[in-house]
Design a protein around this nucleic acid. Sequence first.
RNA 1: GGCCUGGUGGCGGAGUGGUGACGCAGCGGAUUGCAAAUCCGUGUACACCAGUUCGAUUCUGGUCCAGGCCUCCA
Length: 459
Amino acid sequence: MALHLYNTASRQKEEFVPRDPANVGMYVCGPTVYDTAHIGNARPVIIFDVLARLLRLQYGDAHVNYVRNITDVEDKIIAAAEANGESIEALTTRTTKAYHEDMAEMGALPPNREPKATEHIVGMVEMIGVLMEKGHAYEAEGHVLFDVTSMADYGKLSGRNRDDMIAGARVEIAPYKKDPADFVLWKPSADDIPGWDSPWGRGRPGWHIECSVMSRAELGDTFDIHGGGRDLIFPHHENEVAQSCCANGDGTFARYWVHNGFLTVEGDKMSKSLGNFRTVRELLAEAPGEALRLNMLSAHYRQPLDWTSDGVKQSKTNLDKLYTSLQSLSDVEADESQVAKSVLDALEDDINTPKALAALYALSSAANKETNLVERSKIKGKLLSGGNLLGLLQQDPKEWFQGAEEGDVTADQIEALILERVEAKTNKNYARSDEIRDSLKDQGIVLEDSPQGTTWKRV
RNA sequence: GGCCUGGUGGCGGAGUGGUGACGCAGCGGAUUGCAAAUCCGUGUACACCAGUUCGAUUCUGGUCCAGGCCUCCA
């Protein structure tokens, strides 16, 4: 089947047909770099990484342009830098670097392009100028505001109308707004905070304009996929649509809107007040990034995902199982012409990763049973290619089982003890052989005997 | 108040108008010196109440419950 995606704009699954049959453009809202990434930030990264892998397989690496921005100018950044007593640049550089490291640990490939908001200020000023000229924006008390009444379709993406928004407003409305739903395009900066010169005075951009400008600069007025967390539907994406369509023309901008659901931690929403913010860094100390990734993929991306340490453990177990099969296939070379059709089919159905994982488990099970070498080679090819689509199973199994940081025992010591144990077993000295096995087990090393000999792994 | 998701076996989690994925855990068996790993077998699950239907977990309406957005947020 062809790729189908649930399009937030139409509220249904649609067949994905790119604008240009040969090339695909995808824009995903990236982080505002003011703090280290938490596990919730990782969800869209991993989901859209899987989608990018799928698109690259189908259209070719050179024909997919995956853009994910870095928002490095924003009031939270200013506040955090001040609180930390560090410069804004130091904060954004440090945070961006940590973000890249954390996402790489979770197996996310870098996007093709990663524009930074601060590199696109000129474009933002230009776009705001166009909106002013076309009568979609106005200046008030040093701010430039988008006039939502100038756009008939405003609210369409998120499915809400202006009256509802006004009725539901829980914040005080700035007195200079013509309409309560108007939002800021440009705001004035005091001398001690970052600002750029503009026709409306020294200032900085509002929250939404950067994505309208960067997506256009990288992908053009109209492009295929726009992604992000579902909390961004309103107001962020709604306002992006308003800015872009009003500046560039009706019917432009993103064609497919893809939004991932939220995740909770041990049943609760992550929040600073509950103290349950889990950073990717902390979680990496608990389990390998690949296990965190599998855990993330174990629920469908549009469903809520409850992140629990039990779930992480189970994901680690499942990954062990897959790597065990892969290890057992070390007697054959992978047949690289094989495509894991079952995995592909699942992913083409709106990125159904739980189904894709089930397909991987089926391959694993088949591998454990198959004795024919040609078939084993095919299965290995499928396991690896299916794993690659999901960003899993790309390590050497030996590395997976034995490569974790050395504990109290080194690999050499373990090998020596295995030799001693083999000898003890040969002499039917089972007391000694069990003693060795038990003692290693206490140190987190599990021995497995097979007709081919004894292997070990760290657990 | 408005808008929007969900409620599936012990747990996680797909899916479907008709023969109940998949994984973890459990139980039984095979294998093993004993294990581990693996294999085989094993589960009368779809919040509740109506309705439509030959038949609903799947469609419709209502109820209850949980959560999200409307304000910074992935």
